[in-house]
Amino acid sequence: MNQKQKLFGKILLPAALTAVVLSFTACASSDSGDSSINEESSSAVTTINEEVPYTFFNDSVFVGDSVSLKLNLYVSAQRNIDSNFMGTAQFLTPGSYGSGNELKELGSENSVHPSYNGTEMYLADAIQAMGAKKVFIMLGMNDIAVYGNDGAVKNMETVLAQIKEKNPETTIYVQSMTPIVGSAQAGSLTNENLNIYNAGLKAMCEQNGYTYLDVASVMKDEEGNLKREYCSDPDNMGVHFTDEGCKVWIDYLRTHVS
């Protein structure tokens, strides 16, 4: 064994292993740190796994509102650099979308439904048309103020049941609704309410066998608000993400699904 190998074995390797362990510990604690409501157990995926390859998302569709629309745009931009980015994941992310909107009649006044191939359709039909086998859904920001926390969770449960009825082979991943910048909280749209809503989502997932992903946990600052550096409109709506926020989001997903 030469000097370089000795140095690596005695110093660098232990140091690297320690760094990895510390790094994972830090991540784990920040994951559960400020979300006492959302911690541990259940069908919720809260453990950090080895990062899944982008191909994991090949048969996935991301469903959401304007918060997820930014993820759609981010992924699209990244694919201009790396065509394999997030596999062939597809998106159904109309702005102002919500579970309450989805339950309205297609084409009715103030209804919003996703478009697939240029045709507006019910979510369950769009997922079927796409042939998606994994559904990552994040909704609620446009629902809580209108339907209340319980009503929004109930609406989500109904929407997910419709998806499963039409697409029995799909796996449902429910993503927690991400937080708001502290100064942007208004009316019933507060982080406290979002935490309650997310707790309701998690309980609903446990009852129905859906996987709950606490994306919100990695977006919060020490006070439980959306980190300003992750927010593209901190002085306005305070809910939408920067590219950095999207990167954290995707990193979370890749290490919390298996």
Partner: peptide, 19 residues
Amino acid sequence: LTKMKARQTQRMNEAKNYN
């Protein structure tokens, strides 16, 4: 053109409630 007009309708629909 049909697809683009559908896109216009979709974007209007999305924006009408908040933008």
